[in-house]
Amino acid sequence: MKKGFKYVFMTLLVVALMLGSFLLGNKMAITTGDKVILNKSDFNIYSKTNQMKAVIDKYFLFDVDERKLEDGVYKGLFKGLNDPYSEYLTKEEFDSFKQSTSGEYKGIGIFITVTEDNLIQVVSPIKDSPAFKAGIKPDDIIYSVNGKVYPGDKLNEATAIMKGKDGDEVKLVIKRKNSTGAYDSIDMDLKVEKIKLLTVESKVIDDLGYLHISQFGEHTYKEFTENYEELKSQNVKGIIIDLRNNPGGLKDSCVKIADYLLPEGPIVKTVDKNKKEEVDMSDAKEENIPMVVLINGGSASASEILSGAIKDYKKATIVGENSYGKGIVQTIAPAKSFGIDDNGAIKLTVQEYFTPKDNKIHEIGVKPDIEVKLPDDIINFGPDFIDTDTQLQKAIEILK
Results as ranks from 00 to 15, higher is better:
4 G>N: 05
9 F>R: 07
10 M>C: 14
12 L>G: 04
14 V>Y: 07
19 L>W: 04
24 L>G: 13
36 V>D: 06
43 F>C: 10
68 K>T: 10
72 G>S: 06
89 L>E: 14
94 F>P: 00
97 F>E: 07
98 K>W: 03
99 Q>V: 11
104 E>P: 01
113 T>Y: 12
129 S>W: 00
139 D>C: 13
145 V>M: 01
148 K>T: 12
153 D>T: 12
157 E>G: 12
158 A>T: 01
158 A>M: 14
167 G>M: 08
178 N>G: 10
196 K>A: 06
198 L>R: 15
205 I>W: 07
208 L>Y: 07
218 E>D: 15
227 N>G: 13
236 V>T: 12
251 K>V: 14
266 P>A: 14
267 I>V: 13
269 K>S: 12
291 M>T: 03
295 I>C: 04
301 S>C: 08
315 K>Q: 15
322 N>I: 11
325 G>I: 05
333 A>T: 11
334 P>R: 02
338 F>E: 09
344 G>E: 01
347 K>I: 13
347 K>Y: 00
348 L>E: 15
351 Q>G: 04
352 E>H: 08
357 K>D: 02
357 K>P: 01
362 H>K: 13
366 V>C: 12
367 K>R: 13
372 V>Q: 06
381 F>A: 09
385 F>T: 12
385 F>V: 10
390 T>Q: 09
399 L>W: 00
